[in-house]
Design a protein around this nucleic acid. Structure first.
Length: 1010
RNA sequence: GCUCAAGUGGCGGAAUUGGUAGACGCGCCGGAUUCAAAAUCCGGUUCUUCGGAGUGCGGGUUCGAUUCCCGCCUUGAGUACCA
């Protein structure tokens, strides 16, 4: 009987599915353990070998925990709303729901063949109305809430309305929009309903407001900050511009401090926490208010304008020599004097024309303009010129700064450029060449009451004095901005929102879900409305509480519905809670289920979600916690980022040249051999030939005439041009050369091999040595992201077919540490595959089962117990790569020991089963079990089997090990020294010298210093 | 620029309360088996002038450093005029 992995794996996958082996129960005597993967977006390309890496790791952990006696929840689902399905729909007219369904089928088939222990009965799909019903429901809860800074939590909007009605808004301490005018209870009660709604919108946790958003014209939608990388869209790399639009936003800024604090109590990687901390961007300082001087010389400023700034350095307030406003600042047009008007307007216009990206790219050019206005220093009462400059960002702080050139390099450069004075307020510091920002290394000078104080003292004092004047206070600022929540897309969750008199109204929860309407086309309408503007049945009837035809809109009983849809992160912000009770139609999950499973014990996924999904989902969880809807405010206790598996792209240079004489140029040409399959799909190939500066397809197309047949599978091209580099040569081509193993050979050997290589000269297949040219060939590999467009994708289906799922699982783990980026090399899989065959042979011989009741040998017990110890430690440390090698060592040793004992071979299967579940299950049943191995108890480690009677001591001289010596374990230092010093090799090493010192650590090492 | 992570054979990587550097696997070399090949098995494989040297580079602490400290270099990731 040989190891027939295809048959075995299919058999047990079927068995697990039929017996619902991995179905988790919401009630159990066992302790719970929740292992979660970031659910995939089901793309049309299917899985490549990089995708399952994290799933394999989490599956090993989940299976291990089952062996440990835990009730394990290990679910999987699909984040199935998203852009690619929609773009495909635009191109083909196919409904995204259909392509999504097909893609999910492919994903499911691919996932199933790897043998994951998912509880599929709990599957979720974010695009399923039974799921997004609850996404809509949570949205409504956010709308109906405000953030109370006094209680530091979200509260029902009703409580706010009650306060407004009884005492106005003066005492309300809420996170809300800036610049809400104060009103009394009387005012409130006299406001119209619409006025009241407008005010409430400024407090709600999700709100509709006209804000500056990131608009991506190419994608036709707005993007959140985390969807923009280096000023272009994350998806597609399209330019992004700032634009004022009325959009839904999420008041995540309300949770900035709690999102920051919460990081301390969760076991996530430091780098990920660091990313989130940077993103939240807390800075502690003060807000300072500068009065604009009403008249300076001939200029008169009518109103008493104030410029508010935020600074982290209130201690430097006496160093202020000018102020700078962002060009977009609302005061610019109001305070600019007649004389400066032309210059300022020209500058504002020039800045507005520059895209975000240009401004980011060009940080060195200093530009600005003087407004002609002056502000008054709060303490000295001296006039301070007010400038505008694009180094001040409208979106951060107040969009204005107090400029302290001696303490800030940007202010310094600006001052130098425009010849503004640079007063020094630092004791013993020279600021004639650059600003001094090493705040802890000096004392404040020339600053009235701050003189002689250090940074900390001066900061405190300055804030105290500002507060006395009523012109400032201590303030903490966060970089975290509210997140734009609407997208001008079709394939997303519809909002449960209709409009009455322009004001948004929530549809009552009992009428959810509001299903995505059918549309003729998935593009924006001719009038520029989002795709839902194409829907004909998309209005809300408040009498029947149904979606009805748009033509019936009368604005009394039938109103227009929201045309935007929710962003991709909506559905993924709470899915981990839904798995706990995914079929519940009454609640997003029952209280019992939520209280039982509570939170995720282990979450595995990619680090690319650091400032997107992983931040938004924490925000929603905290909100749900505030509302008493979930029992914990952090949903994932531990999170691990799996590294990416990279593809190896083959690069190839072939230069065949003939030197006619020393002065003439080398005439060089390329040979390319590609597969016919590659050639026939030429128009689909997207690669780029760097040296020639043109697309691969275009290049090859141009050279059609010179293609000739190499053999039945390959085509040959010969032409006189320079060697080129492309990642898109079919891998099978390089494999021809791989037979030569050019890379691993020395230069000489490589040349020799090439001499024997077969090439095609255009007419005949010839050996390279028959070519009289001097031949230089270079083959190299470069590691890059695995991607369809780079032709370096390895499909797990093929691996499973050829080596089996257990081999795939083991190999993905064996590749290296889970969190590391590492290249895939299919050739290496023979190592783990060979291990499985060897393991099989330990159990099954040609005439059947080899396992018997023989007493295990001492050596075998030792091998087994050290394996238990190591594997257990490894799993708990997520060091899966090292346990694979531990298994290899164990099997090598047990094979050498000719171990046949059931006492060892049987529990060994339990150790292995998380990693290679199919072969473990098969052998388990062959040993006579009728139940799955999945819940068999993990073997107990017994240290007594590892006790040694002797130790092979390394004998070092000056720290260098020179030889080893086997000595009894119970020898003390003195006994060891006697034996070692008497040893002839010691004498040889010392060569007559007397050692200065002898270090002996019993049980560890001997070191002789001499 | 700032923040974080990482640099070990031909390759993936192993080893840290400081104690035998290179486990395990790939690849390569040699051998067995075979008419031959595949598969399988056995042996070797850091470099070396055979004294030794050696974990990115230069210092330091130590009896002893891949591991700790100081200063650099390189690579990768994140972030970027954040006041």
């Amino acid at each position: 009987m040989t190891y027939n992995f295809n048959e075995i794996e299919a058999k047990w996958q079927k068995y697990w599915a039929e017996n619902q082996t991995f179905k988790a129960d919401n009630k159990s005597e066992k302790p719970k353990f929740y292992v979660l993967d970031m659910f995939p977006y089901p793309s049309g390309a299917g899985l490549h070998v990089g995708h399952p890496l994290g799933y394999i790791a989490s599956d090993i952990y989940a299976r291990y925990k089952r062996h440990q006696g835990f009730n394990v929840l290990h679910p999987q689902g699909y984040d199935s709303f998203g852009l690619p399905a929609e773009q495909y729909a635009i191109q083909t007219g196919q409904h995204p729901a259909l392509t999504t369904e097909e893609n999910i089928k492919t994903y499911r088939r691919q996932l199933d063949q790897i043998g994951f222990s998912f509880d599929w009965s709990r599957e979720v799909r974010t695009s399923d109305p039974s799921y997004y019903k609850w996404t809509q429901w949570i949205f409504i809860q956010l709308f109906e809430s405000w953030y109370n800074n006094d209680t530091n939590k979200a509260e029902s909007i009703e409580t706010l309305i009650a306060v407004f009605a009884s005492e106005g808004n003066s005492k309300v301490n809420a996170v809300c929009d800036d610049a809400i005018a104060p009103f009394s209870a009387e005012d409130w009660n006299n406001y119209t309903s619409k006025e009241q709604q407008e005010i409430l919108l400024k407090y709600r946790l999700t709100y509709l407001a006209e804000t500056e958003v990131n608009w991506c014209p190419a994608l036709g939608t707005v993007l959140a900050n985390d969807e923009i990388i280096n000023g272009v869209s994350e998806r597609g790399g399209h330019p992004v511009i700032r634009k004022k639009m009325t959009q839904w936003s999420m008041r995540i800024s309300a949770y900035a401090e709690r999102l920051l604090q919460g990081l301390d109590k969760i076991d996530w990687t430091d780098s990920l926490k660091e990313s989130q901390r940077n993103w939240i961007g807390k800075s502690v300082g003060a807000s300072v208010s500068f009065n604009v001087i009403k008249s300076v010389s001939s200029v008169a400023v009518e109103t008493a304008y104030k410029i508010d700034v935020f600074t982290t350095r209130p201690d430097t307030i006496f160093g202020v020599s000018f102020m700078t406003l962002a060009p977009e600042h609302e005061l610019v047009s109001k305070i600019t004097t007649e004389a400066q008007k032309a210059e300022v307007e020209a500058y504002v216009l020039a800045t507005a024309k520059r895209s975000e990206r240009d401004r980011m790219a060009d940080v060195k050019t200093i530009s600005g303009a003087f407004t002609g206005a002056y502000a008054e220093h709060p303490f000295t009462k001296q006039p301070i010129p007010v400038w505008i400059g694009d180094y001040v960002l409208a979106g951060y702080g107040t969009g204005a700064v107090m400029s302290v050139p001696c303490g800030d390099q940007r202010d310094y450069d600006f001052a130098k450029h425009f010849n503004i004075e640079i007063p020094n307020i630092f004791e013993g510091v020279d600021v004639s060449k650059e600003a001094f920002s090493d705040k802890d290394k000096t004392f404040i000078a020339n600053s009235d009451f701050l003189n002689g104080l250090n940074y900390k003292e001066a900061t405190k004092k300055a804030i105290e004095e500002l507060e006395k004047l009523g012109q400032g206070e201590g303030k903490t600022n966060y970089r975290l901005r509210d997140a734009v929540f609407s997208r001008q897309r079709y394939w997303g969750e519809p909002f449960p929102v209709y409009y009455v008199d322009g004001m948004p109204q929530m549809i009552a929860a009992e009428h959810l879900p509001i299903k995505l309407p059918e549309v003729e086309k998935y593009l924006p309408t001719e009038t520029g409305e989002p795709p839902l503007g194409n829907a004909t049945v998309w209005a809300w009837c408040t009498e029947t509480n149904q979606v009805v035809s748009n033509s019936k809109i009368n604005n009394t009983t039938i109103h227009p519905l929201e045309l935007n849809t929710m962003p991709g992160w909506a559905g993924s912000s709470w899915y981990f809670n839904r798995y706990m009770d995914s079929s519940n139609t009454e609640e997003f999950a029952s209280k019992e289920a939520l209280n039982y499973w509570k939170d995720v014990d282990l979450y595995i996924g990619g680090s690319e979600h650091a400032t997107g999904h992983l931040l938004y989902s924490r925000f929603w969880q905290k909100f749900l916690f505030d509302k008493g809807l979930v029992p914990v405010d952090e949903y994932a206790k531990k999170l691990i980022n799996q590294g990416m598996i990279l593809g190896e792209s083959a690069f190839l240079y072939i230069i065949e040249g003939r030197l006619t004489n020393e002065t003439e140029d080398v005439s060089a040409f390329c040979q390319i051999i590609i597969s016919k399959e590659f050639y026939s799909n030429l128009e689909k190939k997207e690669g780029y030939i760097e040296e020639l500066g043109e697309p691969l397809a275009k290049f090859l197309d141009k050279e059609l005439g010179v293609f000739q047949e190499f053999n039945k599978n390959y085509i040959y091209l010969k032409k006189s041009f320079k060697a080129f580099k492309t990642s898109n040569i079919d891998v099978s081509y390089v494999n021809i050369h791989n037979e030569l193993d050019l890379l691993s050979l020395s230069e000489d050997k490589r040349y020799e091999r090439l001499q024997n290589a077969h090439f095609f000269d255009g007419n005949n297949v010839i050996q390279n040595k028959d070519i009289s040219f001097e031949t230089r060939i270079k083959v190299s590999r470069e590691v890059e992201k695995m991607s369809k467009s780079k032709y370096n994708v390895v499909n797990p289906d093929q691996i499973c077919e050829e080596y089996g799922a257990d081999s795939l699982r083991l190999y993905e783990m064996f590749l290296g540490p889970l969190e590391q980026y590492k290249p895939w090399n299919t050739a290496g899989i023979t190592g783990v595959h060979g291990f499985l065959k060897k393991l099989w042979k330990l159990y099954v011989g040609e005439n059947g089962l080899l396992v018997n009741d023989a007493e295990p040998s001492k050596d075998s017990l030792k091998t087994f117990h050290k394996t238990i110890k190591k594997v257990q430690e490894d799993i708990e440390n997520f060091s899966f790569n090292t346990s694979v090698s531990t298994f290899m060592i164990a099997v090598n040793e047990l094979t050498a020991q000719k171990c046949t004992s059931k006492d060892i071979l049987e529990p060994l299967l339990i150790l292995l089963s998380p990693y290679a579940p199919h072969i473990a299950e098969e052998l388990w049943h062959q040993l006579g079990y009728n139940e799955s191995i999945a819940t068999a108890a993990f073997p107990e480690f017994d240290a007594s089997h590892l006790v040694e009677s002797s130790k092979n001591y390394p004998i070092s001289f000056n720290g260098k090990m020179r030889f080893t010596l086997e000595l009894p374990m119970d020898f003390d230092a003195k006994q060891i020294e006697e034996v070692v010093m008497a040893h002839e090799k010691t004498k040889e090493q010392l060569a007559g010298r007397t050692p200065k010192k002898v270090i002996i650590v019993p049980g560890k090492i001997v070191n002789i210093v001499g």
